[in-house]
Write a protein that binds this DNA or RNA. Structure first.
Lengths: 219, 219
DNA sequence: TAGATTGTTAATCGATTAACAATC
DNA sequence: TAGATTGTTAATCGATTAACAATC
């Protein structure tokens, strides 16, 4: 059979996890069908956009009926790469790093953090939930030996670039960066910046704007 | 003087924190000037876009010279609402909630988490970094009395909507939602979804893709 | 059959990039 | 003055929305 040409725009890729969420909840509720209009409604979006997005990942809908939830869910899992087991190392076991390491939600997404690193002598050698915290100097050795492809950076911004370089040098090709700094990496390596401050300023702006505008409670 | 009409697109608003980051680093390094080309280079973007974005928030550049770093930084702070002190409450003191509460980065952005809530009897009454963890039943009272405008939700997805309703009812108009579920709120209330899973699938997809493509190390 | 709903084409809207006159 | 660099206009590109024939 011919390979289906799948064009996923950046904007659409950002929407897929939301479809996934909603469909997973539907599936748990025992529903097997959902229409683009229903899906759109629960995500406050346009039904035409839902149909367009879903049609571009395959043909899972039937006119007059709607979409088959389990089928669509499976396709989305495939599409989002949730089927793959991904092993990652985490560098910087501060509060945020510890929170991510213990976050139960990742398991469902196939992510397993297999090794922890820090540069603070106080932390090196200690354990977190039974996992040993290693010195960053061991990164090259461990990453190479376990063929790790993903690195999670939760260090202070000042050392993030240095850590990124070490990870890439050792074979990592995907970096999830929580440090508030822009990393430069060679082509072929993908960086995802998780910018908490960006989310915050988005909301702050709303608060400021609202203060000058009409009070919201008197609709 | 006439009010300057400021049109900020959604996409541009998402870029502003990155400009801010870069300029703040420049300012710390003692630089007072920066060109659109330099700024673009450190963020791997197009210089035309930088100029377009910056020109739409004001006239801080001088042809032949570049932009005045301190001036621009100040304008961005204003624009991003970083000047405003924002007080927030946090609901759900699990690992993620605790990490956010202790995150030192927020202080610089004007955010202060003034109260913690949880529904787990084991946690209620306990302290985190000297702050008392209150029962969620106290949300209406506390939020109203302190006139809190922002709520941070780090509860499990099942209770997130219920908490959102309580917060909104008590007067909150901005919700920072870390629970992996879509919240429905009345108009006038803004929700920012921080979707960790989305970032993860973005990277996972790259890993899968790469396995089928050419090995990246042999550029 | 009649009603519902998809997948897709065409129309609209918005965002990015290129080019350049104006300015330092 | 000559070289550098902005702010903005015009051209391109991409994404969203509307509309509807095809299908169940």
């Amino acid at each position: 059979m011919p390979e289906r040409e799948v064009r996923i725009s950046r904007a659409m890729l950002a929407r897929l996890p939301f479809y996934y969420r909603t469909l997973a909840a539907r599936a748990r509720a025992g529903n097997t069908k959902i229409s683009s209009a229903q899906l759109a409604a629960s995500l406050s979006m346009d039904s035409a956009q839902v149909r367009r997005d879903l049609s571009s990942i395959g043909e899972f809908g039937r006119p007059g009926i709607g979409y088959n939830v389990p089928e669509l869910l499976e396709a989305l899992e495939e599409m989002l790469g949730l089927r793959n087991r991904t092993e990652a190392v985490l560098v910087g076991v501060g509060r945020l790093g510890a929170a991510l390491f213990g976050y139960p939600g990742f398991e469902a997404y196939g992510l397993r953090i297999v090794s922890l690193f820090d540069s603070d002598p106080e932390r090196i050698g200690a354990e977190l939930d039974g996992a040993l915290i290693r010195s960053v100097s061991e990164i090259p050795h461990v990453v190479r030996r376990l063929s790790i492809q993903m690195g999670i950076i939760t260090t202070p911004p000042t050392s993030a670039q240095e850590i990124a370089d070490m990870l890439v040098e050792a074979g990592v090709i995907a970096i999830w960066n929580f440090a508030p700094v822009s990393l430069s990496v060679p082509p072929g390596v993908m960086v995802r910046d998780e910018d908490l401050a960006a989310g915050l300023s988005y909301l702050s702006r709303h608060l400021t704007g609202t203060m000058h505008a009409a009070r919201p409670e008197q609709e």
